[in-house]
């Protein structure tokens, strides 16, 4: 069955937002603009996720999710050792899109800031959800993997939207060109490995710590404008 979760706002990370806005350092004027934008948007965001758990079997480089299969070297590698996977869709709702549109007409600097805030917020929501799932299932999670990334085709969005009923569950819809509306949304596969979390497991802590610090380092796209390392 498809389940849904709503979250309280995770803490805002100004540094991360400025990175998305293309600023490598900050000054008083930028911070004032950023904080005014956060103030304007903060009560207008939803933090909603819908998800379901699917079985996963991997043969060669084909991932079989029961109701559909997907050929992808990268995803097969990511989900290796997993017996189940959480597929999920997360969204911030329509209000941030409305603000981006509004300020696109009257103040592109603010539109840009809202864009950056949206990017930081949706990632923060995904982080919160993935951590939540790991805790709830008492399992380890693989780094989440989204359609359009690596060799996973964007077209798999159609399958995800159908099995997650995103429109009905969280008001997220898929456009003909496979873009999502509201735009500040993410869909992803989250692999669960069978061994439960051992809080004392030093090796896990290291891996986890490393991943959180070095998200960019693990990424294949080395020519990215936002690459942090």
């Amino acid at each position: 069955m498809i389940l849904t979760k709503s979250y309280e706002a995770p803490p805002f990370c100004e540094k991360e937002i400025l990175r998305y806005a293309g600023c490598k350092s900050e000054d008083a004027k930028l911070l004032r603009l950023l904080r005014a934008c956060i103030e304007e948007v903060k009560d207008k965001l939803a933090y909603k996720v819908c998800y379901r758990e699917l079985p996963i079997t991997i043969a060669e480089e084909t991932c079989d999710f029961g109701s559909f299969t997907l050929y992808s070297q990268n995803l097969a590698k990511n989900l290796k050792d997993c017996k189940t996977v959480i597929v999920f869709a997360a969204t911030l709702g329509v209000e941030i899109d409305r603000l981006i549109t509004k300020y696109g007409h009257i103040s592109p600097s603010k539109a840009l800031m809202f864009q950056a805030i949206g990017a930081e917020r949706i990632e923060a929501l995904c982080d919160a959800f993935c951590k939540d799932i790991a805790d709830e299932k008492r399992k380890r999670t693989k780094p989440r993997f989204s359609p359009g990334y690596g060799d996973v085709p964007l077209a798999v969005q159609r399958e995800l939207f159908q099995i997650l009923e995103c429109s009905k569950k969280i008001g997220l819809s898929l456009n003909d060109s496979l873009l999502m509306s509201p735009s500040k949304s993410v869909t992803a596969f989250l692999g669960l490995t069978e061994d439960g979390i051992d809080e004392e497991d030093e090796a896990y802590k290291t891996v986890k710590g490393k991943r959180e610090m070095n998200k960019c380092a693990a990424c294949m796209k080395t020519d990215c404008a936002y690459r942090g390392v």
């Binding site: 806005a21 600023c23 350092s25 004027k29 103040s107 592109p108 600097s109 840009l112």
Partner: peptide, 14 residues
């Protein structure tokens, strides 16, 4: 010359 960033450029443009 990367001494100013995009939001600042836009504020001036506005």
């Amino acid at each position: 010359s990367k001494t100013m960033y995009l939001p600042q450029l836009l504020m001036s443009a506005e």
